[in-house]
Computed example of a mutant assay.
Amino acid sequence: MSNVLPVLDLRDADRGPSTRADFLAELRAAVHDIGFFQLVGHGIDNGAEILRLTQSFFALPESDLAELSILKSPHLRGYSEVGRELTKGAPDQRRQLDIGPERDPSPADPDAAPYLWLVGPNQWPAAMPELRPAITAAMDALTAVSHRLLRLILAALDAPEDFLDPIVSPDPQVHLKLLHYPGRRAERPDEDQGIGVHKDYGLLTLLLQDHHGGLQVSLTEGEFIDVPPVPGAFVVNLGELLEVATRGYLRATTHRVVSPPAGVDRHSVPFFYNPRLDATMLPLPTRAVRDAGGVVHDPDNPLTNSYGANVLRGMLRAFPDLIALHHPELLGYSSR
């Protein structure tokens, strides 16, 4: 199937009233009808270098990577081998490095919110000192683009552009992953779950993918289409909290990644732009939201208006062994 995802140029938002109006109309259609689009003109011109660093990281000796094991981090930062993360109980066939804002751990407090242990330091490879400054700068740039894009989405819905500023300022809970999807094993060609079917937790995801592709989006129940790589573009999709804040008018669309064929290595870098951990979403003050029919109810994934609750519930599903190791008291946590 040909690419049905629109390609939007962020520069059009500043090219005069008529071009801006056309851009906002296209953006509104993309986030309402599909929940995915491709973004160019974002001003981040070192995507190829970020992908090169990603490839170099996963080419490090396994002993170097083991030093960064996510098993050592109570904050779920670090390196995961193939099969460490689960989606709907099945192991994802990818390696990854999880990176968040560089913070000191929260002081121990039995009365603190149970998601505050997500705050903490990252783990960086000693053999690649260039990785930390490059990724830190990329996260800063992606945070700025994401915040601008969020404001434009609100403008496209005729809501005040700054309405969601209080939930992300001054400290959005951003998250970046370096990902490696190895080719399928010759003896298991049907083992193709790069990452299983899911939705993202927060507000916006911006994905840098290499030329191999593999990302698929479900626009109708049970049917998936490929998201072909567009040079220089970030694939943008919406998270569950925007579906909650718009009573289902905006779509947090189901997607997955299919493992590449044997002998092919896929690399990608998703960036997740989220509210502060303690933030609670409010319905957007716009007619489109008031008239919306409500979020899609999934008994296996109940949506809440609390980002901290959403992400903690997701971490419990994705890393149950790590939760049992570092935070066994949370094993019975739901969204209380």
Rank of each mutant, 00 (worst) to 15 (best):
D92C: 09
Q93G: 12
L97F: 05
G100P: 01
G100K: 10
E102I: 13
D104F: 00
P105K: 06
S106T: 14
S106C: 11
S106V: 15
S106A: 14
D109H: 08
P110A: 14
A112N: 09
P114A: 04
Y115F: 15
Y115H: 13
Y115I: 05
L116V: 14
W117C: 02
L118M: 12
V119Q: 11
N122T: 10
N122G: 11
Q123V: 10
Q123D: 04
W124K: 05
P125M: 06
A127C: 07
M128V: 11
M128P: 04
M128R: 04
E130Y: 01
A134N: 02
A137P: 01
M139G: 03
M139P: 02
M139W: 09
D140P: 00
D140G: 10
L142C: 03
L142D: 01
L142P: 00
L142R: 04
A144V: 10
H147Y: 05
L149R: 01
R151Y: 00
L152K: 05
L152W: 07
I153C: 08
I153S: 07
L157D: 04
L157F: 07
D158Y: 03
D158Q: 12
D158T: 08
E161Q: 12
E161R: 09
D162I: 06
L164E: 10
D165C: 06
S169N: 13
S169A: 15
P170K: 00
D171Y: 08
P172A: 09
V174D: 09
L178I: 11
L178P: 05
L179E: 04
Y181L: 03
G183I: 03
R184K: 14
R185N: 09
R185H: 09
R185P: 00
A186F: 04
R188C: 06
R188M: 09
R188E: 14
D190A: 12
D190W: 11
D190V: 00
D190P: 00
D190C: 00
D192R: 15
G194M: 02
G194E: 05
G196W: 03
G196I: 04
V197D: 07
H198A: 08
H198C: 09
K199T: 15
K199A: 00
D200V: 04
Y201F: 11
